[in-house]
Design a protein around this nucleic acid. Structure first.
Lengths: 239, 239
DNA sequence: ATGGCTGCGTAACTTATGTTACAGAACCCT
DNA sequence: AGGGTTCTGTAACATAAGTTACGCAGCCAT
């Protein structure tokens, strides 16, 4: 199984920054804040906390979903497998966000349509399905959380789809690097993992990366990519 | 601008049939049914009906969204443009369904991330944004509708993404044909439109289609595809 | 320090898809 | 019926991406 990126979500470079409201609103980080006393009591009684110190598969495709997953630390990665066995990341779920697909399945009694694994050092709160539905019925805060979580996901997925239609792999890679690098322009991740996120293979990533290197856009190292010319990378994405 | 397909939604061949609950629940067809008297009064007073006799663009990318679109007849088509100017259909919205992306934008004050056009002979009810938010606050029926609409969309998008990663064009085409043909196995649509739905070009569709013809899977005509061997087509998709 | 593991660089090759260019068939209107 | 328009069929070609195969470099543990 693949390593996880230790950094964030990709592909929101397009028409919106989904993170914005998540980060700006403290109650999104801790959605418990807006609950009524009764609601909070219910939640505290029924929720289950789980911690993972290393990457762990938490949901398998086709499994019935037992609850909503609220990430408090680390991140979840939602992905699919291609028939050839390679992975493609659909999106990440970061602290304060809820695994909306779980929500989704929760409300519609569906089976989960993808795999989910945790990053290293990740903590989640699981809110059992029945409890979540109860809370949704009576707590406006939960209703809002739900709609926003779903909305966000829809935008991410649409953006991803659009990029796949409209962009070459090198553009998508450039975009991914820009979106996921630290403030210093460093990305601690293997090319294998990058390949997984973009749904391609390591060799292809290596080839593209070398292209970037010869253009002076990035520098590579073992388990590390450093952005040298961010502006140049951006120009690749939107010329 | 492209013609619309006169038939339905594609790409739910995978892990779920999204149509199921939509069709089975009458209040999904007419979501007004479950409202409280006050809510219904509000809705009746505030909603706007519009009818289109021919394909019409109703939402442009980047436009602020003015309301929720509930389709009562015909269908909407949500699509993007590639930089080269060709289109790719993201999904369809059929009678009883709501344009959830509009919802999405409604709740988050975002701009619409795609284009939408009506089919010929389509009627929609537009529920202004402010009104919809009001109804959402107090009407459980609207809350449920909203969540279900978003959920459905998420599943469709995920399925689409997965297919793009996992399937060849011929498999996606086969899938599209199977999903969209009438009960008699007929599809009244041009190859140009098919190309638009799958995000490719007419010539490619023609090539693939000829492949299908020589394998005895379909027959083609001007503006028409007839499925000859549905089982054979299915075998292409999941061998 | 050394052997083994993991990750990267690279090249040659294959394949799927997109592109260009054109011809002919079906349909539509007057 | 004739002429224009809209579709489809086809072939040759261009290109992006996936595949195979291998060598080497950095890191780790004993």
């Amino acid at each position: 199984m693949n390593d996880m990126l230790s950094c964030g979500m990709h592909s929101e470079a397009g028409f919106l920054k989904v993170e914005a409201f998540t980060m700006a609103r403290p109650e999104a980080i801790n959605p418990l804040a807006d609950l009524s006393p009764q609601g909070r009591a219910l939640l505290m009684a029924g929720r289950i906390e789980r911690a993972f110190d290393k990457p762990t598969a938490v949901i398998h495709k086709g499994q019935p979903v037992s609850g909503a997953y609220l990430v408090t630390h680390g991140q979840l990665r939602v992905f699919t497998y291609t028939p050839q066995g390679s992975e493609a990341t659909l999106y990440f779920i970061r602290p304060g966000e809820t695994c909306v697909l779980a929500l989704n399945c929760l409300f519609n009694d569906l089976r989960y349509p993808a795999w989910v694994e945790t990053a290293a050092d990740t903590r989640v709160e699981i809110i059992p399905g029945a409890l979540y539905r109860q809370l949704f019925m009576r707590e406006p805060a939960v209703q809002n959380l739900t709609v926003k979580a779903l909305s966000t996901l829809v935008f991410r997925l649409m953006d991803e789809l659009e990029q796949i239609h409209a962009c070459n792999l090198d553009q998508r890679l450039a975009n991914f690097l820009l979106s996921n690098a630290s403030d210093e322009g460093v990305l601690l991740t293997t090319q294998q993992a990058l390949a997984g996120h973009l749904g391609t293979t390591r060799e292809v990533i290596a080839r593209l990366m070398q292209g970037f290197v010869t253009q002076g856009l990035v520098a590579t190292g073992r388990g590390r990519v450093t952005i040298v010319d961010a502006a140049g990378l951006s120009r690749l994405v939107e010329p």
